[in-house]
């Protein structure tokens, strides 16, 4: 099966049926290992045991931006190449991305209270991620508001690409402005500043959560394809009844 074959929804559904059980299994194993390693990780000399929140906060924060990146590529697929699965991919990813962003915000807040002394601060990083979350909600509302999926797809694609401007702002906010949030400590020039006792569990969790996203996304895309088939059959039924 070539990549171009995946443009055919039926072939995509057949591939999904074969791949999903393996992906779900790999995701479960990796996340179990990740949670175990997170539980066994040593306390940080400054933060104590609260450093354990990092193992779930950071993967969710990464994914909040990664999912919008995936949606931006899908938006290009909708607007430029008119790929039949592009808007299916974008629509299916939005609620999952919103969930990851919500978790990044809440776990960050719960980490911030003991470390910074506050749940929330209107600084550049926190505010730009909150804007990302609101954009996810806006996109979901847009998809629900427009009945015709192809019309909704174009509007959503434009909104997604405009929203992508927020991604570099989130990433570099800690460098451009003086914020309460710490600067990058994993993906930075000169390599990670994290000790391997923290870095390894963090990377395992990051890969596990990324696989979780891929699994959920494929399953949600399958649902969206079925939903569109239901819609087209309902329209056929209505036209048959009218004739």
């Amino acid at each position: 099966m070539t990549l171009i074959d995946l443009a055919n929804p039926t072939k995509f559904l057949s591939l999904t049926a074969r791949v999903l059980p393996w992906l779900a299994g790999a995701t479960s194993i990796l996340l179990l290992i990740g949670f175990y390693q997170a539980a066994m990780a040593p306390d940080d000399y400054q933060q104590g045991a609260t450093v354990k929140i990092m193992f779930i906060h950071v993967p969710n924060a990464w994914l909040s931006m990664f999912v919008w990146g995936v949606m931006s590529l899908a938006a290009l697929g909708t607007l430029v190449w008119r790929h039949p699965l592009a808007d299916v991919a974008a629509k299916a990813a939005a609620p999952i991305g919103a969930a990851f962003t919500f978790l990044a915000l809440v776990t960050g807040s719960l980490w911030g209270r003991p470390m910074w002394g506050t749940y929330w601060e209107w600084d550049a990083r926190l505010t730009s991620v909150l804007i990302l979350f609101l954009m996810y909600l806006g996109l979901i509302a847009l998809w629900r508001a427009v009945d015709d999926p192809s019309r909704a797809a174009r509007a959503a694609a434009i909104l997604t690409l405009v929203g992508a401007l927020n991604l570099p702002i989130i990433k570099f906010s800690v460098d451009w402005w003086n914020t309460l949030h710490q600067p990058a400590s994993v993906m930075r020039m000169g390599g990670s500043s994290l000790d391997s006792a923290f870095l390894i569990p963090l990377l395992v969790m990051a890969v596990g959560f990324s696989l979780l996203f891929i699994t959920l996304h494929l399953a949600a895309m399958r649902n969206e394809i079925l939903r569109r088939r239901v819609r087209s059959l309902q329209m056929m039924q209505a036209s048959q009844q009218a004739a």
Binding site: I53, I96, A220
Partner: peptide
Amino acid sequence: GPYASFIVTSYTLVVAVVLILIVWIAVDY
């Protein structure tokens, strides 16, 4: 340590939201 409630709440919330996502997608299917 003294901030156990923050850690436990964070992990519980993540597991709950992920489970809700999985159940929602399975029910929708």
